[in-house]
């Protein structure tokens, strides 16, 4: 039977066979050939979650609410944000933490509309990561004057998989999904669809030209996430942008006329 004991570093381990002596084989590499099982039980995202909690605390102290905005590449996050900055101008000071693998194209575009933008290029020192994690967001937060902001939107790297795994310190998670991506993606990428509090179904102006069946998509979505709010929108025409902005105001805590 194993015998548990605790080391000074806090790890607990058990000898699997303390009474068996290994007298055969080559033992020149080490004096004992026994193997000890060390219980670790450490969450692999523990470090990320610690930094996310620090981000959340900093944002809360500065009175800033934070939304993590995720989607696949080309779903329309930046176009929606461009509309959002214009629509909320004068009501709410919006800041953007822009995550892109490379280039400052999106960041430059949003900054030209008057929103403070902090760019995190994940290829510069972060190994070309396909998502933002709490540490990268922390470095981006350091370049923003948080006390000047009401709401911060973290525009994550375009990717339907990895961003959903990392808490960055946000208050709510939003996802942009383009109808050109097909009906079945909620079942194929359930982690992100399940993580989202709101899903902006974008590019609805293209529906007459597509075979996309909204009822099928919504059925799949409800299967993986029965609670998410759905907003039908076209960032190109502006349809649904009011409803999206009302949701952002709700996250911020501003009373809206629509309730």
């Amino acid at each position: 039977m194993g015998r548990f004991h605790r080391h000074t570093d806090g790890t607990v381990h058990e000898h699997e066979h303390p009474d068996v002596r290994h007298d055969v084989g080559d033992h020149t590499g080490y004096r004992e050939s026994g193997t000890v099982r060390v219980e670790v039980l450490e969450n692999l995202l523990a470090e990320n979650d610690r930094v996310a909690a620090a981000n959340r605390l900093d944002l809360e102290r500065a009175g800033v609410r934070c939304v993590n905005l995720m989607s696949s590449p080309g779903a329309g996050k930046t176009t929606l944000l461009r509309r959002t900055i214009t629509a909320l101008s004068g009501t709410l000071q919006l800041g953007v933490l822009e995550g892109d693998i490379a280039t400052s194209l999106d960041a430059d575009e949003l900054a030209s509309l008057g929103a403070p933008v902090s760019l995190v290029n994940t290829s510069a020192g972060f190994g070309g990561e396909c998502h933002l994690d709490a540490v990268m967001v922390r470095s981006g937060l350091g370049r923003l004057a948080l006390s000047d902001l009401d709401l911060l939107v973290v525009e994550n790297v375009g990717n339907l998989v990895c961003p959903a795994e990392f808490d960055v310190g946000e208050d709510a998670r939003a996802m942009v999904y383009a109808v050109t991506e097909g009906e079945e993606k909620p079942l194929k990428y359930p982690v992100m669809f399940r993580a989202a509090d709101v899903i902006v179904v974008n590019k609805v102006d293209l529906l007459p030209h597509l075979d996309f069946r909204m009822d099928r998509f919504l059925g799949h979505l409800r299967d993986v996430n029965p609670h998410a709010r759905v907003i039908h929108a076209s960032a190109r025409t502006g349809e649904g942008v009011d409803e999206w902005c009302a949701w952002l105001l709700h996250v911020h805590g501003t009373p809206t006329q629509r309730g």
Binding site: H15, Y30, R31, E32, S33, G34, T35, V36, R37, V38, E39, V40, L41, E42, N43, L44, L45, E165
Partner: peptide, 13 residues
């Protein structure tokens, strides 16, 4: 779950 459960290390003397 996304966790390191345990590791087997060479027994210490």
């Amino acid at each position: 779950e996304f966790q390191i459960a345990s590791m087997d290390v060479a027994e210490e003397v």
